[in-house]
């Protein structure tokens, strides 16, 4: 299991990287490598050119915007985010999720941008992005554009990006004041991709009622899903059982290891549990 032959480029600027991706045939970017390198070693990926993003300066920052949102550079390592005080303060959902992302050794290399672009339907960070209504910034030969994550996650492991484009940053609105969050997943072993996962955000009004509910589910569709019926059921006077019942309409993928019905069943179980935790963490706006 050795990587196939490719030409390697390690540009030091974003512009150079985009130029390489635009001009070289069959070129693929390399971020943290924790998904790309196994695919290379197994020769599932056979690029002619590999454009390593690790030498580009300034792509790994974590900044706090004036409105309190976080802007996280695509090359920020998962392990850095896990330990970052501003991430803990403004997006505790992400910290909760990161503890389930692979293992310490993969988080030391793995990046947030790599995970969002890889877009595994059961991965934790895309689910966080869906729940937080993140906006990703994509750069290409014609400049940069911002895409709501819901639009970015276009299909099964398929982000809304051209081959010569790069994800450069993700903007995550700060968790609203008093909001209760919870990230839960069920995997057979610690660090595995989840069979099903749920991210919940309950945003209170001034008197502590649920003004806005966000329910995002992973592992049960081609991309991370929001569950509007459940969210509606939770607003105002929350009807938890109706929210959980909304998972019954899910149509997860079937594979050799896990039956689709079980993923659907798990989604309901995890949602019920996550709502209890999120409600207990909710305060007032």
């Amino acid at each position: 299991m050795k990587p196939p032959p490719f030409a390697y480029h390690d540009p030091s600027t974003l512009e150079e990287a985009i130029s390489l991706l635009s001009t070289l045939p069959n070129a693929r970017p390399l971020a943290g490598g924790q998904s790309m390198m196994p695919m290379l070693n197994m020769r599932f990926a056979q690029p002619d050119h590999l454009v390593d993003l690790n030498r580009i300066a300034g792509l790994d920052g974590v900044t706090v915007e004036p409105d309190g949102a976080l802007t996280i550079g695509a090359m920020a390592r998962q392990r850095v985010l896990e330990q970052h005080p501003e991430v803990a303060r403004r997006c505790p959902l992400m910290v909760e999720a990161l503890a389930q992302v692979g293992h310490r050794q993969t988080r030391n290399r793995g990046t947030i941008g790599g995970s969002l672009c890889h877009l595994d339907p059961a991965a934790e960070l895309p689910l966080v992005a869906a729940a937080m209504e993140a906006v990703v910034r994509v750069a290409g030969p014609n400049g940069q554009r911002d895409i709501a994550f819901a639009d970015f996650a276009q299909g099964y492991m398929t982000p809304e990006m051209e081959p010569e484009e790069l994800l450069v940053a993700v903007r995550i609105p700060a968790q609203p004041a008093g909001a209760g969050h919870c990230f839960l997943e069920y995997a057979r072993r610690h660090g595995d991709f989840a069979i099903a996962s749920v991210a919940v955000m309950l945003v209170p009004d001034a008197v502590g009622r649920i003004a806005e509910a966000r329910v995002a589910l992973g592992g049960v569709g081609a991309v991370p899903l929001r569950l509007p019926e459940a969210e509606a059921a939770l607003r105002g006077a929350p009807d938890v059982s109706r929210a959980v019942a909304a998972t019954k309409t899910l149509e997860p993928m079937e594979d050799a290891l896990v039956p689709a019905w079980y993923r659907r069943h798990l989604a309901g179980v995890l949602l019920g549990r996550a709502l209890v935790i999120a409600q207990s963490r909710m305060g007032r706006a």
Partner: peptide
């Protein structure tokens, strides 16, 4: 990743 060997947490 598909064939599950026991790890320390299990």
């Amino acid at each position: 990743a598909e064939y599950l060997l026991m790890s320390a947490t299990e």
